[in-house]
Amino acid sequence: MRWVRDYTPQPTENGLYRSALLVTISGNVLLAAVKSLAAYFSGSVALYSDAANSISDVLYSVMMVLGLYLAQRPPDLSHPQGHSRFEPLVGTLISFSMAFAGYEALRASFIRFQQGGLAIEPGLPTIALLFSAAVKVGMYLFIRNTARKLTSPTLNTAAKDNLSDVLTSSAAFVGAFGSKLIHPITDPIAGFLVAIWIFRAAFLAARENLNFLTGAGASEELRQRIIQEASSVPGVLRVHHLMTDYSGPRLIADLHVNVDGNTTLTESHRITDEIIARLEAMPEIDRAYVHLEPDDWE
């Protein structure tokens, strides 16, 4: 039986993390600069709200670098089970950063709404927002695919934030463009919509990462997959107990499995090792513990 598991990230995983961080940081810095300048010269509060969101993205990019560095450190005496909980911790901090951007967008939009709005010339804001949306679509697809490969809640939160940025840039585009063609008040109204969407994305991200931090269990669908995988091992009669809880972004699975009471000790070890190997090969599982019991045990 394997009592020690190697938590050190493999070279391929390290490369994926580095690529994701490079894309996230460079993309967010570029968009924050472009939208801030466009908002300053155009005076669009909707674009300002979107720029505030991008500035918060830069801050969470820095937190991602630190958090993922800590999460990938191998186990030591202070953290014998590894440092994986730093990942959802960083994801939670990112959600707070998103919430602050939502507050800033709401505040600026309310002030502009009280002033009756402002007609924005469509040229510069239009170009900046369309450029931003295109970049964020590319970032979302890349980060989402990387997060799935690594089962990373931090990168998954970042991907969701990128998707929300596409929608907020679209809302800001409608507001800035509509302020000239429809009515000046459409600009702050679009800012309100941007703020609401940011708050929604922040809430969903915080809820997901808090589940990872507080030891929530697996979904019923995943529990059934774990039971099916264990039950498929030759010699297993049934799984009569399963407990799961998150240790960082991945699950710890604890199973009680029934086998024939006449099974030899050698065969019992083989069954145990095979169940553990199959479960730990699942991307959602970090560690599996298996307790064998004779099926006729009273």
Rank of each mutant, 00 (worst) to 15 (best):
T157S: 15
D161Y: 01
A195N: 07
F177N: 11
A202S: 14
F131L: 13
G138T: 04
L150S: 00
V135G: 10
S132K: 08
N162W: 11
F212N: 08
T154P: 04
N209L: 09
L129A: 00
F142W: 14
T126K: 05
N145E: 14
A201G: 04
V174G: 07
A195P: 03
A216F: 00
A147R: 09
L141K: 13
R207P: 00
S169W: 06
S164G: 00
R200S: 10
F177S: 15
T146Y: 11
S179L: 08
A172T: 02
L130K: 08
L141N: 11
M139G: 00
E121D: 15
I120H: 05
A158S: 14
P188W: 00
N209K: 03
L129T: 02
W197A: 11
L155R: 10
W197K: 03
A158Y: 00
T154H: 08
S169A: 15
A205P: 07
F192C: 07
A216S: 14
K180H: 15
S132I: 07
A159G: 02
T214S: 12
F203L: 14
G217I: 04
G191V: 06
V135Y: 13
I120Y: 03
N156S: 15
G215K: 06
L181K: 09
T168P: 11
A128W: 06
F192W: 03
R148W: 05
A128D: 04
D165W: 08
L130V: 13
F142Q: 12
F199Y: 13
P153E: 09
F142E: 10
L210T: 13
L193E: 02
A134E: 00
A134P: 02
A205M: 10
W197E: 11
A218S: 15
F131Q: 06
F177Y: 13
T146S: 13
K136C: 09
K180C: 14
G215I: 09
P184V: 09
F199T: 04
F203A: 14
L124P: 01
K149P: 02
L155E: 10
M139K: 01
L163Y: 12
A128P: 01
I143V: 15
A218C: 11
L150F: 02
A176N: 08
P188A: 03
N211T: 06
A190S: 13
L213E: 11
N211A: 13
G138H: 07
K136S: 04
P125F: 06
T157L: 01
V137A: 10
S170T: 15
N156E: 15
L204G: 09
L210F: 09
A202V: 02
D165H: 05
V166G: 06
I189T: 08
A195R: 10
F192D: 06
